[in-house]
């Protein structure tokens, strides 16, 4: 239990700071000073002390429940990933629930912005497929879905990013998709105010930001773990900061795509990587 609590706190703090860093990087690229790195963390904490209002139009059970489900789901993600080193498939299930939450918190508020965000969340179910293909390739190469065993495999055979780089690229695309202001973040398009979060105020919003920080940490952790082999704390730190820098650069310089173009771009890149990896496996480039 203590282990889980410690890991969740680390995930929250590290995720918040990384997201703050992300924001700072984007600001510097766009020649703005940008907020302090700690600002995202302060934001998240601040919301817990704000007044919570519930709109008249909402579907109450889901409107409130979904926030806790979101937090719960990513805590499960922390337990499965950094704490227990369990099956990758469960993490995939966690990610699927995350999409549902995105969908439902948009639609349960009754706001038109939330509704549009909800429809777009359905569209962007496409990102599942590249992620899944990446996991399958990891499985094919290592012969296991267990994160712990994948780490041991890598400590013997070297990091997977060298043997299946295209699968790593697919996974990296997921991280870009989930980073704030990304070209694929159609559910949080600024035309939709805050997308699915628009109608959540006060401590509900606080929970959402809390879980998003954890989500960012967990996704980076999984990416680094299954593609870069056994790392120590400094390795994780450097890796996470590096990825945050890269996504910040990408997001600061690209415009947001229209929803169906975003989906098809992801699917096209995913398909290219998929067939590329299959080709590599069959021609024997991958051992």
């Amino acid at each position: 239990m203590a282990e889980i609590l410690i890991q969740v706190i680390i995930a929250f703090l590290a995720g918040s700071l990384l997201l703050g860093l992300h924001r700072k990087v984007m600001a510097r690229v766009q020649k703005r000073p940008g907020p302090p790195i700690v600002q995202h963390l302060i934001h998240s904490l601040k919301f817990f002390f704000k007044e919570t209002a519930i709109p008249k139009t909402v579907s109450k059970v889901f409107y409130i429940g979904i926030v806790f489900i979101l937090a719960l789901v990513w805590i499960v993600g922390v337990i499965v990933g950094p704490v227990a080193h369990d099956s990758l498939l469960i993490l995939f299930g966690v990610y699927a629930v995350y999409k549902i939450v995105e969908h439902n918190s948009g639609s349960s508020s009754g706001s038109p912005y939330g509704k549009l965000s909800c429809v777009r969340a359905v569209l962007s179910a496409a990102t599942e497929l590249p992620l899944f293909a990446a996991i399958v390739f990891v499985y094919l190469v290592t012969g296991t879905m267990n994160i712990g065993q994948i780490i041991t495999y890598q400590s013997v055979h070297g990091p997977l990013v060298f043997s299946i780089p295209l699968a790593a690229l697919m996974f990296f695309m997921l991280i870009i998709t989930k980073s704030p202001y990304s070209p694929f973040a159609i559910t949080k398009d600024k035309a939709l105010i805050s997308g699915f979060e628009t109608e959540h105020f006060g401590f509900l919003r606080g929970f959402m930001l809390f879980s998003e920080s954890i989500a960012w940490y967990v996704m980076l952790w999984v990416f680094l773990t299954i593609f870069f082999g056994p790392l120590n704390a400094v390795g994780y730190l450097i890796g996470m900061i590096a990825i945050t820098f890269v996504t910040g650069f990408i997001n600061a310089t690209t415009p947001i795509l229209s929803p169906n173009h975003s989906v098809m771009t992801q699917i096209t890149i995913g398909a290219i990587c998929f067939f590329g990896t299959i080709l590599m496996i069959f021609t024997g480039v991958v051992a």
């Binding site: 008249k56 139009t57 909402v58 579907s59 109450k60 059970v61 889901f62 409107y63 429940g65 639609s107 349960s108 508020s109 009754g110 706001s111 038109p112 509704k115």
Partner: peptide, 9 residues
Amino acid sequence: LSKPETQVE
């Protein structure tokens, strides 16, 4: 358990 929301358009 839940009741549906009201959509405002």
